[in-house]
Structures are given as structure tokens and as C-alpha cells.
Design a protein around this nucleic acid. Structure first.
Lengths: 329, 329
DNA sequence: TTGAAAGCGCTAACAC
DNA sequence: GTGTTAGCGCTTTCAA
């Protein structure tokens, strides 16, 4: 019932091989026969079976995507960039949510390998040593976007969080800020560590330090931002660096509800650069990282691995910009 | 190098058929041989090739997802619900962005069919007659979540937008509102038509009507909300119904910037129920539709089709709730 | 309870 | 340029 390459061959009075050639754009086919085959393909409404092709050719033109949570606006933006490039290179993407759970991640990896994906792109989470070992034991290329594996051994694309954090801290210091706070947590552990490290390094250089009570690690959500504010407020911070935009907005509102004026009493800056930054008043100052591009460049890097192209740099660092908007002076 | 079912069979001194049986949990295997095979599987680190299995069994345990834009928070929430249920039923999801473009949709459908997906779930967009025809010509089940096809012939899960719209309009009328505005646009045409129809029906019943200049159709974004406000403001609306949360927030801010007080001078209510509603001040009044569930129930419905389960209702209408928060009186 | 054997629909040598 | 022929790794009758 479903029509196969064999039906087309018979109808066009050629061999399967020839049909395969025209379907795959192989130039070694006489134009006349090519036309004839194409005519039959159209008439019979022939659609090549990608599964059979995958089995025979050992290529599935499918890549796996492991994402902590697609409903998180930060990750869905990465996913969008990545999918656009995948489509451009004729790949389909199988997307799975890991919830930052090592066991789930490992399951997903196994499923993806069993599906014979041509490559895998990892958007953040734990990347346990078990999973890492699994990766090492296969020949399927893996690229990491927007995060790092702990040992920084996998190809990755990122921005330089530490540098951004240093830059911000220095500017704040110049303005006379003395008491800092830091709010992190959620999926992006790499970002959290780098941002905090960058800030602490600069503070140390200025004979200052970060009060441990001014550090809050929670999740990435709005309501958690409100919690964060109440956690840090007793240290009377003058400025808070916050990874997540949602959390930062929660802090803004909690601070305002507590009678503080933003940015006069408290300055806030976030790092995730989602569309949310412009949707609060005052508008949120933030590090503008190129989310879409981080996903897109990651996928492009992966295509290079999959097609054995030459690769100049496996650790891509993308530029960022810092936008000082309404929540900073 | 890659180890196959044949290697396991040889090593366990059984036939491929028996290995296949234990891998697939077929009960007709003597426990002793089952254990022996399992031991070899573990020792050899055998991972079944899903592509080969798909070719032989004509089932891929893969479903296709067509989504307008995964970076849109409304759709990514649907996608999350859907993926969770898919995983629960052991399906993988191939996700593709259509950008609401009929040609892209058609391409995606064809790619999905060529990959031999077991089912397809459609989250919104155009669903052109060409694509619809394609669907009709295959036996692959298709379910629509969060929207409808124009002819309402496909299985779908939704909320009753028209009813919600009527309810809101009636309440606003009771409060004495006379001048209404409507802002829609973007991907969810079905919602737009229903909401507008519901409002206009109630207005007509009350010998009122919607000023055509008080209707703005744009896209779903924040900045477009600001545009929307300036488009409708001359009609001096007292209340605006707006599909998209982002757009609604844009209207709130534009109105405030124009010196209006929300909700005293202008009431605003939106329909998409993303997490954004709580991130503005005043908080956005909105229709709470169960986004996650709309995706999840859609996928559950699809699994029923794929497994030939009995289906009571192919047109599922989920409940909603209306939360009157700060942007309405 | 187990095995033999025939495909599933295609690609990729290799021959002509 | 084109055809023949092995597989790819698995499921699934059908026998035994």
C-alpha cells in the first residue's frame, strides 16, 4: 500500500539504484531518465522512507537536544536558535526535558543513542560523570551550549560570565557601592559560579568582601526572587547581581513593596537577557547575552562535527553587552 | 564495533528471535534463558537500534510536534506538558517551528511523515487546505492542541474562548463600561475570532457595538502592545480585551506613560495566562487557561489514537478560570 | 519455549 | 549512466 522506491523503479522502467540516485541528487543520471523518474515520483506521490534510509546509510539527519526545561524562556530562546540552524542544514531535532536530573539525563542520552541520532546538543543541567562516560564511549559528537561540563572537556559555546561580572562590579564600585549581594540558582550552575567568582575577585582587589548572608541560591523563578529579597535585605545591600531575570524582577517588586526606591536605594542587574527585561518598570539592567546565537552557533558547531568539517575552535566565546537601564544608576 | 542483536544471540547461545523476545518483554521465554540473555546484554553493553526496529516493526515511538514558535512562552508551556506525557508513554518528540507559515508547515508535515512518526500534534498556525489534504491522505493520527483547524474536523483540545469572552464582557458591562476595545493577532487566530465574537455578541445584546477603530490586530509582542494602545486610544476605551499577555503588558505601560491610571481610567484583561501576568504592577487580570494541560491532554489523546484505544470524545474542552487582578476593577 | 528465515525500504559497492 | 546485489539490525510469522 505505501509506495516504495521499488514501485517507482518499476513504473519508470529503471532500477532502484537509479531512483535512489535521483532522489539523492546524484549527478550521474542522464537528464532524460531523471525527468522520467521525477515524473513518476510526483505521479505516485512517492515519499522516501527516512527510517529505511537511516538503516542503510547509518545517518538519520536527526540531532538530539537535551534541555533542562523548555518552558523556561531562557532555554526556549536557545532552542529556537538551534532549531533554525538545524533546519537550515536539514536536520530534525528531538527535544527532551531533563529537569536538571542526572538520572533523566542519562536516560535521555541512551534513548537518543538508540535512535541513532547523528549528534547531540546539551543545553545545561548536571552532565554527571556517568553520562560523561557514556558520551566518551560513543562516537556521536556532543556540543554544549550556554553551559559547560564540569571538566570543560566538551566543545562548548558561551559568553564570558566572569568578565561580565567583573565589569559590572567595577562600575558599581566606582559609584561608591560598598555592600553587594548575589542571587543565583536554578539550572545554570556554570553561570552562577562564574558570576560569583568574578564579583568576589574584584571585591577582594578592593579590600572588600561579599557577606555570606548576602548570598542567596534558589531557583530561577519570580516568586523565588521575592524570597531572595527577604533573605538578603538585612545586610542592607546597595546592589544585587542576579542571574535570572525572573528572580530579578521578583526582587525589584519585593523591594518596592518594602518601600525601597529602585535604583536609588537598591540597584539590580541580571544576566539572562530574556525578553522580560523590558517588561518591568523600571526596566531591568542586564547583561545582553546573545541567547539565540548561543543556540545557533552550538548547532552550527555540531554540524561541523557531523560532517567532518575542519574546526578551528571547539570552545566558542560569544560577545556580550551590558545594558544599564532603569534598575541601576 | 557496534554490537548487534546477533552478537548477543551468539554469545548467549540462543537465536536472534529469543534475544528479541527478552528485549521486548515477551513472556514466552524460559526464565533461565531470559536471565542468561540479560546477563550478556549487560556485559556486552548492547543497545537496541531503534532505527532497525522501526523499519521492521513499522513503529518508531516518535511523534512530531508542529509549533509556531518555541521561544514564545505560551507555546513552550504547551510543549512542556506535551513532552512530559509523551515521555510517560515512551515516545520521543521531534519539534519544529512553523512561524505560522503555510509553506513551512507543509514541509514539516512531509518531513515528519518521511520519518515515519507514529503521530503528529499541531499547536497552532495556519493548517492550510493543502496540509489538511495531506493529513487526510495518510493514516497517521493528528491532534490539535490550543487551536482548531478551520473546518474543525481534527481532534482537538481547547478551552471555550467565546464563553470566557462573554463572561468578561458581561461583568464589565455590569460595572458600567460602555466603550470597549479589542486587541488580538499573532498565532492564535482561533482564539482571536472567538474572543472577538463573544464580546460582540454580548455588546449587541445590550444595544452596544464595538467601534472598528477600537480594534487592533497585530502580533503578540510587548512592543506591539504599545503600538496597539496608540491605535485605540482615540476611541477612549474604558476596557480592553487582549489575547496576548505580552501585548497586554505593553498596553499597561503605554497607558501609564500616557498618564492614565490602571485600572481606574482603563481596564485590561488578557487571555494567554503565561507566567508574565504576575510580573507586572498592577498584576494583569487574565483568563487562566490550563496551558500545560492543554498540551498534556492533547498528547494523551494522541496516544489513544496511536494505540487504537477507545476514544470517547475527540473534541476536548478544558475548564478555565478568570482571575481579576490589578488591571481590572 | 525456541529457532529459521523472510522481509521492512533503502544505500552503496561493484560490475557492465 | 545504469543495473545487480548485498546488506543495514531488527521483528515476525511459521515450524518444530
Amino acid at each position: 500500500m505505501t509506495i516504495t522506491i521499488y514501485d517507482v523503479a518499476r513504473e519508470a522502467k529503471v532500477s532502484m539504484a537509479t531512483v535512489s540516485r535521483v532522489v539523492n541528487g546524484n549527478p550521474n543520471v542522464k537528464p532524460a531518465t531523471r525527468d522520467r523518474v521525477n515524473e513518476v515520483i510526483k505521479r505516485l506521490n512517492y515519499r522516501p522512507n527516512a527510517v529505511a534510509r537511516g538503516l542503510a546509510s547509518k545517518k538519520t539527519t536527526t540531532v538530539g537536544v537535551i534541555i533542562p526545561d523548555i518552558s523556561n524562556i531562557y532555554y526556549s530562546e536557545l532552542a529556537r536558535g538551534l532549531e533554525d540552524i538545524a533546519k537550515m542544514y536539514k536536520y530534525q531535532t528531538i527535544i527532551s526535558n531533563s529537569d536538571n536530573d542526572a538520572a533523566k539525563e542519562n536516560d535521555i542520552f541512551n534513548n537518543l543513542l538508540s535512535k541513532q541520532v547523528d549528534g547531540i546538543i546539551f543545553l545545561g543541567g548536571t552532565l554527571s560523570s556517568e553520562t560523561l562516560q557514556l558520551i566518551q564511549s560513543t562516537s556521536v559528537p556532543v556540543v554544549v551550549s550556554g553551559t559547560h561540563d564540569v571538566e570543560e572537556t566538551l566543545p562548548a559555546v558561551n559568553i564570558d560570565y566572569k568578565k561580565a561580572s567583573r565589569e559590572i562590579t567595577e562600575r558599581l564600585l566606582e559609584q561608591g557601592v560598598k555592600r553587594f549581594a548575589f542571587v543565583g540558582g536554578g539550572y545554570s550552575e556554570k553561570a552562577r559560579l562564574d558570576v560569583q567568582a568574578g564579583m568576589e575577585a574584584v571585591l577582594t582587589e578592593h579590600q572588600l568582601h561579599l557577606d555570606p548572608s548576602a548570598v542567596y541560591i534558589g531557583n530561577e523563578q519570580y516568586l523565588d526572587g521575592e524570597k531572595a529579597f527577604h533573605h538578603i535585605k538585612d545586610t542592607q545591600p546597595e546592589a544585587v547581581l542576579c542571574i535570572s531575570d525572573e528572580q530579578a524582577i521578583g526582587i525589584v517588586h519585593a523591594a518596592q513593596d518594602a518601600g525601597l526606591s529602585i535604583p536609588d536605594d537598591l540597584q539590580i542587574i541580571s544576566f539572562n537577557n530574556t525578553r522580560l527585561v523590558q517588561m518591568v518598570r523600571p526596566k531591568l539592567s542586564s547583561v545582553m547575552q546573545p541567547l539565540y546565537d548561543i543556540g545557533a552557533v552550538g548547532m552550527r558547531l555540531l554540524t561541523k562535527f557531523m560532517n567532518d568539517e575542519e574546526i578551528e575552535e571547539t570552545n566558542v566565546v560569544l560577545p556580550y553587552r551590558i545594558d544599564y537601564r532603569g534598575t541601576t544608576k
